[in-house]
């Protein structure tokens, strides 16, 4: 079976690191709205005294590789964007498995319950009806999305953020970015300015 883009990226980096290379710094870039481009890691590598910049579009394999290495991004803002991309990807897999509208409804229901992230203002701009709790998909969908949020918060602590308000704010801001993207909140404010 041919390798995925992410697997090739991870192989390349493993090769660098096994040959006395280092990831000196990690940056993350993403653009939203009408000029959206693919989210990208920008890794400053050092090998044999020589620095080089390696740019790789986001993939789940590369993300897991960097998380396992406890790799933080250079700034808090970039970390938020990275976390938002991760959550967006996991939400997309839930949408593919359970249906887009249903997965989004379960996701929004979860976020309404997680008051610690203070997303009320954004959630007010999301036109999602409560999901049905009767179907066989509700529990697995909810568990998966719950795990994505809780797992990310735990991982933030693991990679070096303090287990307190800082982490909650970090994940909350990532969720804000995700909601804005999924439901075009900023774009709508610009298009329908009152």
């Amino acid at each position: 079976m041919p390798k995925t883009k992410g697997q090739i990226q991870v192989e390349f980096l493993n090769d660098i690191l096994e040959n006395k290379g280092l990831i000196v710094k990690a940056n993350f870039s993403n653009q939203h709205g009408l000029t959206a481009k693919e989210p990208t890691f920008h890794l400053t590598l050092m090998q044999n005294g020589v620095r080089s910049l390696h740019q790789a579009t986001w993939s789940p394999e590369l993300e897991e590789f960097l998380l396992a290495r406890r790799q933080k991004m250079a700034t808090l803002e970039e970390e938020q964007e990275r976390f938002a991309t991760l959550l967006s990807h996991n939400l997309a897999t839930a949408e593919a498995s359970f249906g887009k509208d249903y997965a989004q409804a379960v996701f929004v229901e979860l976020l309404r319950e997680r008051r610690e992230y203070k997303l009320e203002n954004l959630l007010a701009k999301v036109p999602v009806n409560p999901p049905s709790h009767d179907g066989s998909g509700y529990i697995p969908c909810r568990n998966f999305l719950q795990h994505s949020i809780t797992g990310l918060q735990n991982t933030a602590v693991l990679i070096g953020y303090r287990n307190n308000e800082e982490t909650v704010t970090l994940v909350g801001n990532a969720l804000s970015i995700l909601l804005d993207d999924r439901f075009y909140i900023t774009l709508r404010e610009q298009v329908f300015a009152k």
Partner: peptide, 19 residues
């Protein structure tokens, strides 16, 4: 966009994903 790919797994998991 991520459709059809497997989700990101976290280094430490407290609950297994069901999707």
């Amino acid at each position: 966009p991520g459709f059809g790919l497997r989700p990101v797994e976290f280094p430490i998991t407290q609950e297994p994903p069901n999707a």
